[in-house]
């Protein structure tokens, strides 16, 4: 289980170091698969039947449908592979290593017990949260922002699994559905942005001020 957590941490670094959209989406898919594996193990250890379903859903939705949907948008609007760097991948990577360190300190503070697994889960979760934010801020393409949001959500999901053995089943399903719908809706707006602004560079969305 610890290895999977390390794997998730590595995918977080790979996400900020990604230079092209297909690498970003591919890494995101890998991350989703790892998360699903984690959920399976949690369920195996007696997390309850609901978590199996969540794991399967995670695999299908975040490991399959959403990456497919995002690559299709990319292909249809013929956007360039460039992510629109506001901060180079190298600097971003440095920053995210620093974030991982902060997260480690931070989860040491809020989970002061002896439970090392919880501490590592917390580290991975908060790192994902910060890395997601970083992608949203420092990558200027609308699609990259969607992925940043999803990465943040992955972090929360990880924390949820680690802390409470997941939320109540009904809530978890509802949250899942919600995330799915929100990606679809963001996708619709990516099409609109692409049509109106001839491209998906969000730095061009600067008309509204004051």
């Amino acid at each position: 289980m610890t290895y999977i957590l390390y794997g998730i941490l590595l995918t977080a670094f790979a996400l900020v170091a990604a230079k092209r959209f297909d690498a970003l989406i591919g890494t995101f898919r890998l991350q989703a698969v790892l998360l699903a594996a984690l959920a399976f193990i949690e369920a195996w250890h007696g997390g309850g039947f609901g978590i199996y379903i969540i794991a399967v859903l995670l695999l299908i939705v975040k490991g399959g449908v959403i990456p497919y949907f995002l690559s299709r948008i990319l292909k249809e609007i013929g956007a360039s592979e460039d992510l629109g760097f506001f901060l180079t991948p190298q600097l971003s990577l440095l920053l995210s290593v620093f974030f991982a360190y902060l997260s480690w300190q931070f989860s040491g503070r809020i989970f002061p017990g002896e439970d090392l697994l919880l501490k590592i889960s917390g580290t991975a979760a908060f790192t994902l949260l910060l890395v997601g934010t970083q992608i949203m801020i420092f990558r200027l393409k609308a699609l990259a922002q969607i992925i940043g949001l999803l990465v943040m959500e992955n972090g929360i999901f990880l924390l949820g699994i680690a802390l409470a053995g997941g939320l109540p089943f009904l809530v978890e399903i509802a949250v899942f559905l919600d995330v799915f719908i929100s990606v679809m809706i963001l996708g619709v707006f990516v099409y609109r942005i692409n049509r109106l602004f001839t491209g998906i560079d969000v730095s061009r969305l600067n008309r509204l001020k004051g």
Binding site: M136, L149, E153, S182, L186, R192, I193, R207
Partner: peptide, 20 residues
């Protein structure tokens, strides 16, 4: 329009981060 889509995008992104 350009204005309203920009507003909607910012609304979605900022509030989604908040809600996360």
């Amino acid at each position: 329009t350009k204005f309203s889509v920009e507003a909607a995008w910012k609304y979605l992104i900022i509030c989604s981060v908040g809600i996360i």
